[in-house]
């Protein structure tokens, strides 16, 4: 469903994607790890349409989407969260999710409200429906990111460090939410520094460093591989 085909992206001297290729099938759950500045968030930007690659192609749902804007890709089924949450601060929690159901999922009236309410229920935010999003704490903001992405009814969900900065029990709850969301054939790509959260959920792990893929496979194998160990532990051969 998603094919990233030799994509390259630079910011000045910094290479965030170096002829990167990746294929994700429907229902896949892929974890992404890598040191700070490896290009993980930039990869999401290129998939969701916030960033355009310097070279290469991105295909999604049978279409070449490299030139499509973020709204069009969302409507095709790409849902994403932001590492630093970007709630609509002046809208209520419910409105934040409703706009995603209306615009991203293309629903109207009662159907849109039901989708929004469902996304809030799944992320445990129902009680905060009427709160202004700008007043939420970090955990709640992260959950709102997730709820808003789910409300667009994605077929591919991009999670960017939704567990970052949370306590262990909070991480466990988030893992549960993501697992439950995967029920209906949803593909997930999940960036996380908290590797425990990933290994509990994904069956495939990729490791990025300097815009290159240095590991791809079952989580245990990738984490044990020499290249990945070097990057994470700073061991040089």
């Amino acid at each position: 469903m998603l094919e990233i085909d030799t994509v390259t992206k630079r910011f000045g001297q910094v290479v965030v994607a170096d002829a990167l290729s990746l294929t994700v099938r429907p229902g896949d759950a892929v974890g992404v790890v890598g040191p700070n500045g490896a290009g993980k968030t930039s990869l999401f930007g290129m998939i969701s349409g916030d960033l355009s690659p310097d070279a290469g192609e991105i295909r999604f749902a049978g279409l070449t989407v490299t030139r499509l804007d973020a709204a069009a890709r969302c409507r095709l089924g790409v849902g994403r969260t932001y590492q630093v949450p970007r709630p609509f601060a002046d809208l209520t929690v419910f409105e934040n999710v409703l706009v995603a159901a209306q615009q991203g999922a293309g629903e109207r009236g009662r159907a849109a409200r039901a989708t929004a309410a469902d996304a809030l229920a799944r992320t445990g935010l129902s009680d905060l429906s009427d709160r202004l999003a700008g007043r939420l704490g970090l955990l709640q903001r992260k959950r709102l990111e997730l709820a808003r992405a789910l409300a667009t009814r994605p077929s591919l969900l991009l999670l960017d460090e939704v567990a970052g900065g949370l306590t262990d029990p909070e991480v466990a709850e988030l893992v549960e939410i993501v697992r439950a969301a995967r029920g209906d054939g949803l593909a997930v790509i999940w960036i996380e520094h908290v590797v425990r959260a990933l290994t509990a959920t994904v069956e495939r792990l990729i490791c990025l460093a300097g815009g290159r893929m240095i590991g791809d496979g079952p989580p245990a194998e990738v984490l044990a591989s020499r290249a990945v160990q070097e990057v994470f532990l700073g061991v040089t051969p």
């Binding site: 969701s48 349409g49 916030d50 804007d69 973020a70 709204a71 969302c74 409507r75 994403r80 932001y82 970007r86 709630p87 609509f88 601060a89 002046d90 809208l91 409105e95 934040n96 706009v99 995603a100 615009q103 991203g104 999922a105 293309g106 808003r148 409300a151 667009t152």
Partner: peptide, 14 residues
């Protein structure tokens, strides 16, 4: 209102 609040997040929400 979503656009006024955050145009990037609005686009990502469709």
């Amino acid at each position: 209102r979503a656009v006024a609040g955050d145009a990037v997040a609005a686009a990502a929400s469709g």
